[in-house]
């Protein structure tokens, strides 16, 4: 795998980082996970050609969950710190949407990212997150509802401004 690692890193570094960030809400943790995941990729020898991205996302999800389960991680990493590290985005609307997505529970923001941005199917997300397809579908619906409620609570007309 070492011969392709440079190209795979270029292609998927941001996807890995975004998923790790969706889980951890910490730029530092997401960077660390990113490094860990690609180092594992370097040493992996059982990945089918064309399945690299699926493998990366699966390992990223696993690494992120492992980090979240650790005692140390439960006591650090706040939304405020995340926003300090990542904002502002290009527009105020983007920043507000990002804040509200990241304010959701982990299970909701992860499925939102995987479904809307990465384009994974609910079945694929179920495999990645070790959940059932029904659970993913339910989480997606609840994530949309919560997001809409939160944005409206912040004074936005969600249907017009965010397409919700």
């Amino acid at each position: 795998m070492e011969q392709d690692i440079g190209a795979l890193f270029c292609a998927y570094q941001d996807s890995v980082f975004r998923l790790a960030l969706s889980y951890t809400r910490s730029v530092q943790d997401a960077e660390d996970i990113c490094q860990t995941v690609f180092l594992k990729l370097l040493h992996a020898d059982n990945i089918q050609p064309g399945k690299e991205k699926a493998w990366l996302m699966q390992v990223t999800a696993n690494e992120s969950r492992n980090l979240l389960r650790s005692f140390w991680r439960r006591n650090v990493g706040s939304l405020d710190e995340l926003l300090e590290d990542t904002l502002p985005l290009q527009t105020t609307k983007d920043s507000e949407l990002f804040i509200q997505v990241m304010a959701l529970d982990t299970k909701y923001r992860v499925v939102l990212y995987l479904y809307y941005y990465e384009g994974f199917s609910t079945a694929e997300i179920a495999r990645l997150t070790h959940s059932s397809k029904t659970a993913v579908t339910t989480r997606l619906q609840r994530a949309r509802d919560k997001l809409k409620t939160n944005l409206e609570g912040a004074g936005y007309e969600t249907a017009d401004q965010f397409g919700l």
Binding site: F9, Q13, D14, Q35, F38, Q90, D94, L97, F98, Y116
Partner: peptide, 20 residues
């Protein structure tokens, strides 16, 4: 809208160089 937001979230250049 969500794509527009996440598209702007990228691995910081310094971290990218370090990991590379």
């Amino acid at each position: 809208q969500i794509n527009s937001v996440f598209e702007q979230i990228r691995l910081p250049a310094q971290a990218s160089q370090r990991i590379r």
